[in-house]
């Protein structure tokens, strides 16, 4: 049996918001360590890897591994019904047909209970070994979201170029070009505002802007985002959770 209670429903709301536009159906795999999701978008360009660690929950128990096949659009309709500050509890039996979603306000004078039908979903699990990256950038997630939205208005591709001194986000479209250059700096008072650039080798990669626009829907999960890049390889975009992470692996574009 699974019983997971969040101190606030806001974490789950943000997680669903962050992934529902990339994938529609996915398995939530529940183990004693927490909840994981691995899913690939329909165009098979973006891979999502989510870990909601046991410590993200106020109370958590999962005696046996349980898979919840969830339609995120339906789940989102239910999850939006809770107030962000409500307790959120997910309950499922072993081999469940549905999952119970319970919201309680903190005064306990209102309890809302929903049941979501589960689906039997096929899913290929991809083995993601520890990848070697040539460059790692950590920056404020909101700044990365703005850069993405701004440059996406010019082109459907977004280029990321990392040199020793800086990182350049660049787009080249029909009516013009644009780029944003960031240098590394340390903000002692607000560490989350810092920009950290670690580069072993220079990087020049191009990605589909629409996929990065989907990735930045994770912005509300974390003050900062870490971007890891390697030549001719998928990029990793990571938003840290209180215990766990939301990672997006994005396949690059190549010269034909």
């Amino acid at each position: 049996m699974l019983e997971g209670k969040f101190e606030e429903s806001s974490l789950m709301k943000k997680v669903v918001d962050a992934i529902k536009d990339s994938v529609k159906l996915c398995n939530f795999n529940c183990t004693e360590h927490g909840v994981t999701v691995q899913a690939v978008d329909d165009s098979r360009v973006l891979l999502i890897s989510l870990l909601i660690g046991e410590a993200s929950f106020e109370e958590y128990r999962c005696d046996r591994n349980i898979t919840l096949g969830i339609d995120l659009e339906s789940f989102n309709k239910i999850i939006k019904n809770g107030n962000s500050s409500d307790f959120l509890t997910l309950i499922a039996e072993d081999s469940p047909d549905n999952v119970l979603i319970i919201f309680e306000d903190k005064k306990k004078d209102r309890v809302s209970e929903y049941s979501l039908k589960l689906m039997d979903l096929d899913s290929d699990f991809l083995q993601i070994d520890d990848m070697e990256f040539d460059a790692t950038i950590t920056m404020p997630s909101s700044e990365f979201a703005k850069i993405t939205r701004d440059l996406k208005t010019l082109s459907e591709s977004l280029q990321i170029i990392v040199t020793k001194e800086n990182v350049k986000f660049s787009s080249d479209g029909d009516f013009g070009t644009g780029n944003v250059v960031l240098k590394g700096f340390v903000d002692m008072d607000k560490p989350d505002e810092s920009i950290k650039i670690d580069m072993a080798r220079p990087i020049n990669l191009t990605f589909g802007a629409k996929y990065i626009a989907d990735i930045v829907k994770g912005t509300s999960l974390s003050e900062s985002v870490t971007i890891k890049l390697a030549d001719k390889s998928p990029a990793l975009f990571e938003y840290k959770l209180p215990s766990g992470f939301l990672r997006f692996y994005l396949a690059p574009k190549f010269d034909e």
Binding site: V40, S43, R44, V45, L46, L47, D124, F125, L126, Q127, I128, S157, T206, G208, S233, P234, Y249, L250, A251, P252, K253, F254, D255, E256
Partner: peptide
Amino acid sequence: NLKQSNITNFFAKS
């Protein structure tokens, strides 16, 4: 012209 690669080509099925 740039071609979009496929994420599943980079990771092995397990």
